[in-house]
Design a protein around this nucleic acid. Sequence first.
DNA 1: CCACGTTATGTTATTATATAACATTGGCAA
DNA 2: TTGCCAATGTTATATAATAACATAACGTGG
Lengths: 159, 159
Amino acid sequence: MSSSKHHDHKRCVTSALENAAAICSSRGLRLTPLRRQILELVWHSHRPLGAYSLMEMLAEHSGRKLVAPPTVYRTLDFLVEHGLIHRVHTLNAFVGCSHPAGPHSDVLFICRECQTASEVHSPQVYKAIHICAAEQQFKVVQQMLEVVGICAGCAARKP
Amino acid sequence: MSSSKHHDHKRCVTSALENAAAICSSRGLRLTPLRRQILELVWHSHRPLGAYSLMEMLAEHSGRKLVAPPTVYRTLDFLVEHGLIHRVHTLNAFVGCSHPAGPHSDVLFICRECQTASEVHSPQVYKAIHICAAEQQFKVVQQMLEVVGICAGCAARKP
DNA sequence: CCACGTTATGTTATTATATAACATTGGCAA
DNA sequence: TTGCCAATGTTATATAATAACATAACGTGG
Ligand SMILES: [Zn+2]
Ligand SMILES: [Zn+2]
Ligand SMILES: [Zn+2]
Ligand SMILES: [Zn+2]
């Protein structure tokens, strides 16, 4: 559990669940038990998790009978659609969004050693991308830039 | 065949094949018939193609017997490894690299209407990403930023 | 030329990821 | 309550990727 950086990860989880509840409430969305459980599992750590891992974890942790893939994917789709989690294409996986209320124009730094994915909001990158897009007359619809490399923690451990 | 922008696509293909031959030659790599054929098929258009589509196209176009997935993936791995094509994670697909000799720090604009993927080299974006990474003490290993949206051509067609 | 090590390709089977199509349930409001 | 709609369940299948091992092609020293 938790990421490479030592921190009180329970706070991440409770905060994520509280945010989700608030957002769903304010938007008239239903944060059902299944959605809540899967969101909590996605937040198990800062490592993106695949749909099938989540399926298995759900069966183990919640006592619930093994749900089938469509159920998990539908729930993940819901969470992605409303910005509570992000899909990580590089890993075919999902990770919790660290600022679900915001505009979601971020860079996701993915460590190829420890798989930790950290989301960084960078107006500079955002601006540069949009300038570049404008030059191509390209209209950006969805933006989650995935950058693969080595995180600070892993770089320190492996000198 | 070809992309949304009208252009002499045959030139794209011949140029890509010539570049590949030169690069392989200079690096002591073997551009075997299979590799050459698959590279040519990837360059069939500017739309990224999946491995299985390439398999089928290979069987149709080259008269060759249907090759199995591992063969295609190995060949694609070779082409990716040496920068002749790019893997497009957003689409689980592959697209030809438009400047295979370069440093490959680019933005790939993917049109969700016509699937055309156009690679743009932007020092500004590159710089912004690396500044952002440096702030996180994150060491970038691999960078191909995929941005999904609507290309100029499709925007013009659908007002 | 041959024998040999290396690289490339072939083959079979399996794993991993994702969706289609339809059935059932549960909340909620007329 | 009845009836709708959203959510979840179920079954089957599509799509993407790899493991493990077999054979073929290439080049190099003898
Ligand atoms: Zn945390
Ligand atoms: Zn790491
Ligand atoms: Zn072209
Ligand atoms: Zn387009």
